[in-house]
């Protein structure tokens, strides 16, 4: 998917993450901060990159402010931000397809 405009999903509540995607400069660029960085930073990064790959996003700047979200929450917030950035978040969401 192509990131067309800046879009956000998620909150800064505990156990959530706030994800912002912006059009990129040819690659995936990740900015990550997390309240559980020392123990889960590596896994959060893996989840973010794997989710973007699944959504076929290869050109984006993504900012994740994590407040201890579980992997499923992170993936959902990323999916939502990406779909919003393409104006595809209103209808015909591919549940069970690209969105898992």
């Amino acid at each position: 998917m192509e990131i067309k405009k800046t879009a956000m999903a998620g909150t800064l509540e505990s156990s959530d993450a706030q994800v912002t995607v912006e059009p990129g400069n040819g690659t995936v660029e990740l900015e990550l901060s997390s309240s559980v960085m020392n123990q889960y930073g590596r896994q959060i990064k893996e989840t973010v990159l794997a989710t973007l790959e699944r959504l076929e996003v290869d050109n984006a700047k993504i900012t994740v402010v994590d407040k201890g979200a579980l992997d499923c929450t992170l993936a959902a917030r990323i999916e939502c931000a990406v779909f919003r950035s393409c104006d595809k978040a209103d209808k015909d969401i591919p549940w069970g397809g690209m969105i898992r």
């Binding site: 123990q39 889960y40 930073g41 896994q43 579980l70 992997d71």
Partner: peptide, 10 residues
Amino acid sequence: SLVGRPDDLQ
């Protein structure tokens, strides 16, 4: 199983 296995602190 809920939160993942944490990495060791460095």
